[in-house]
């Protein structure tokens, strides 16, 4: 997918574990793990809002768009 998730990097910067984030935002570790490993197909605004609120960051700090990957997929 052309959208990649950099949740692990933000978590490292904030010194927060996935378990702690899970407890704070009320999303299961399994779901956060899906998000962290890039397996997620979609993210709810409510989840993104809760994560950004707890990590004191912007959605753009977590989500990245890889234009090359997108172009490669379009070419296929």
């Amino acid at each position: 997918m052309a959208i990649s998730v950099k949740l692990d990097r933000v978590l490292l910067d904030r010194g927060m574990s996935l378990t702690e984030l899970s407890e704070r935002v009320g999303v299961t570790i399994a779901n956060l793990s899906i998000l962290k490993t890039g397996k997620a197909k979609a993210i709810r605004f409510s989840t993104l809002e809760a994560i950004c609120h707890e990590l004191k960051c912007q959605p753009g700090d977590i989500l990245f768009f890889d234009d090359e990957d997108s172009a490669a997929k379009a070419a296929q």
């Binding site: 779901n31 956060l32 998000l35 397996k39 997620a40 197909k41 979609a42 993210i43 709810r44 989840t47």
Partner: peptide, 8 residues
Amino acid sequence: KEEQDLTV
């Protein structure tokens, strides 16, 4: 269903 399961 797969998409729903992988929506966080």
